[in-house]
């Protein structure tokens, strides 16, 4: 699905939804500073699953090497924003 008009909030909301679906996270506790590993106990496989949700939702491909340093919900949203801008 192509979403050229995705706003920052759309992207953050999608990361939240992925955290709820994949990590059974409590949505009300999530913020952009929530850390995948430290706060949500996500391992590397879960992180890949979250990225796959983002790839599908925003019709993107995010290479494995781009995930270095993507530790928080905000950082994941930044990555998606950058990739969308690059693709535009």
């Amino acid at each position: 699905m192509t979403t050229p008009t995705a706003t920052r909030q759309d992207i953050v909301d999608t990361v939240y939804e992925a955290c709820v679906e994949i990590l059974q996270a409590d949505r009300s506790t999530l913020s952009e500073t929530t850390a995948f590993a430290a706060d949500l106990e996500a391992d590397s496989l879960a992180l890949v699953e979250i990225v796959m949700v983002l790839e599908e939702r925003f019709d993107l491909r995010i290479p494995e090497e781009d995930l270095d340093g993507v530790d928080t919900i905000g950082a994941a949203a930044d990555l998606v924003s950058e990739r969308l801008a690059a693709a535009a």
Binding site: S44, L45, V48, E49, M52, E56
Partner: peptide, 9 residues
């Protein structure tokens, strides 16, 4: 690219 990381485990 849609095959998930949990397939193998």
């Amino acid at each position: 690219h849609r095959v998930g990381p949990l397939l193998v485990p």
